[in-house]
């Protein structure tokens, strides 16, 4: 059987993806179409993030892969094994040791720095999809900075229910220009996007789009000026393992009872170590 090229993809594919990434970085929040390849994982399971990672990773990189915040989730395990097998890179469970972090639906609790890259897996790249199903129409709206349909949605939600309907995928304004879909991260993680020192790359394999937020870019959630942006909270709850209360928690049912734990196991472990000292 044939052995694969470094990073599985052939060199031309990597070249096209890298050029798309560069264009995306040059225009923060703008959707760049790319000729997304089919990968050994199914569409919808991270082929976009995977193509980005495989195009930028080097043998000396240290890779961390998380899904729903944890390295042990099924999606994370498969991807980590696969990427390592075709790149020989190092892997880690610790955020501060990684140079590339590929993630589905969360930003790690421990802040990342300007030497690290986050690669987000994106199911639906275009935030306007909810109000405009036609892709050609959406391109026009983005081009003319016309997000009026989203504002009507926001007004409707705040006027009728008091709160916006977006739980995850909350629309954000990037560099005061494009309104972008931050991928299905919870509201809790939105503030982390603003002026983040790391390079943030977003890959949608099935929809064939790449977009990016370069380091230290202003990113604000799309809200009315006089309506505060609310994030998820867990009133009165703490992680049962490390006691943290200012983090995103998992709700787990054990024997019919509710239990709360840190969603991010790396953070939890560090926190436990700190409190032991």
């Amino acid at each position: 059987m044939k052995t694969f090229n470094f990073g599985f993809l052939d060199e031309d594919a990597k070249k096209e993806i890298r050029r798309s990434i560069l264009k995306a970085i040059a225009i923060p929040g703008y959707l760049v179409a790319f000729a997304s390849r089919e990968m050994p994982v199914s569409r919808g399971w991270g082929t976009g993030g995977l193509q980005i990672t495989l195009s930028i990773i080097l043998e000396k990189d240290t890779l961390k892969v998380i899904d729903q915040g944890t390295d042990h989730s099924v999606n994370a395990v498969i991807l980590r094994k696969f990427i390592q097998s075709c790149t020989n890179c190092k892997t880690t469970l610790h955020t501060d040791e990684a140079t590339i972090i590929q993630t589905r639906h969360r930003i790690p609790e421990i802040p990342t720095n300007s030497d690290q890259i986050l690669v987000f897996q994106v199911p639906i790249p275009d935030v306007l999809t909810i109000v405009e199903p036609s892709p050609s129409q959406r391109r026009i709206l983005h081009a003319y900075n016309d997000y009026s349909k989203l504002w009507v949605l926001l007004y409707e939600d705040v006027a009728t229910t008091g709160e916006s309907r977006f739980s995850h995928r909350y629309p954000v304004v990037v560099n005061n220009r494009y309104v972008m879909d931050p991928s299905p991260i919870p509201r809790y993680d939105i503030p982390k996007l603003n002026l983040n020192p790391s390079l943030l790359l977003f890959g949608a394999g099935r929809e064939k789009m790449i977009y990016a937020i370069p380091p230290y870019t202003p990113v604000k959630p799309l809200t009315f000026e006089d309506i505060p942006f609310k994030v998820e909270n867990f009133p009165g709850q703490r992680c049962e393992k490390c006691g943290a209360s200012n983090v995103f928690l998992d709700l787990v049912y054990i024997n019919g009872e509710k239990h709360y734990f840190c969603n991010d196991p790396d953070f939890c472990q560090r926190n436990q170590q700190c409190s032991l000292k």
Binding site: S148, W151, V152, Y155, E156, V158, A159, T160, F224, E225, D226, I227
Partner: peptide
């Protein structure tokens, strides 16, 4: 598919108004 109020608000937000209570 949107309420009467939201329909009226469409023109107001299209003009760039971003303060909810003022729009309402």
């Amino acid at each position: 598919y949107f309420s009467a109020g939201a329909n009226v608000s469409e023109r107001i937000t299209a003009a760039g108004n971003r303060k909810f209570y003022a729009i309402q």
